[in-house]
Amino acid sequence: MSSSSDDDDRIPFSRRPEWSDVRPVPQDDGPHPVVPIAYRDDFRETMDYFRAVYLADERSSRALYLTTEAIEMNPGNYTVWHFRRLVLEALNVDLHEERDFIDQIAMRNPKNYQIWHHRRWIAEKLGPEAADKELEFTKRVLAYDAKNYHAWSHRQWVLQSLGGWEKELDYCQKLLEDDIFNNSAWNQTFDFGLSYNQEYSKVRYFVITRSPLLGGLQAMRDSELSYTIEAILANPQNESPWRYLQGLYKGDTDVLVSENQVSEVCLKVLKIDHSCIFALSLLLDLLCYGFQPSDELKGVIEALRKSEPASSDDKLASTICSILEIVDPMRSNYWAWRRSNLPSKAC
């Protein structure tokens, strides 16, 4: 089988003088391999030479070069990466150079676990001085694909292990302004919020002895709440800020219920968009937690019920479920189930 057209000028290892002393170790798939792979010639040869240096444990610069070729063909091979790290350590290679190599290969394979793991290994070795470069690099990857899971994971690790939190909220804000549907950035904002809270509350804990945690959380919540409401109103069909809003009150439903702005944003949205399932489902949750609806809210919901007139004993929560059954056909069975399982305290 011929090699791919990109590599037409590639010289096989067998014709390279610097490798003439190495006897390649061929792959032994056994007599009856299952799902055998139709390896290309250059792939097979490169791996045969890799096996030879790996078995000989040859930690040399030519071995490093060989791993570069093997990785370019085969970036998921964790054995090759592992050996490369052994060689890098043995040769005491400047890891800034290694990072440049990863910059290139990661941009071409932005969703490869092994490459990101290797990058983390380098950054860990370089320590806090690497933080800025790492944040810069993930920013570049996220500029191509703002939802790249590996890049966000790496970014969180950098922030937690090497630092650089200062500008993080600004960065997420910027990404959200560019693409308000970016759930990854919403998540990061949340994570930032939590870390910020923890730091903030830790400091307050030593300074002020009374309810430091609550004070910290509430301070964060207020500013986050207005930002989130703004995002919801800008685009009520976007699920992410709705989830984020509820997340701000996770485990603290009493506060959620008593925060007027939450039911108000639902009302505002429903006046413009009668079938917004996120607004309806949030209202439903509020009612299940014991929220007491205003007459205005009741009126708006009743007006949304288009079909049969309300029977007097119908709960508002039940009406919302009925509306959801119609406007959210993907989940109509679920809303029907919610309707028949309403808690007694729901209005």
Partner: peptide
């Protein structure tokens, strides 16, 4: 696929057992 996986799968050679798992 059991008979022979196309060349494109060589980049996943390290997960050969996983490829077999999918097919079998």
């Amino acid at each position: 696929m059991m008979e022979r996986l196309p060349s494109d799968y060589e980049t996943q050679e390290i997960n050969h057992l996983t490829l077999a798992y999918f097919a079998i």
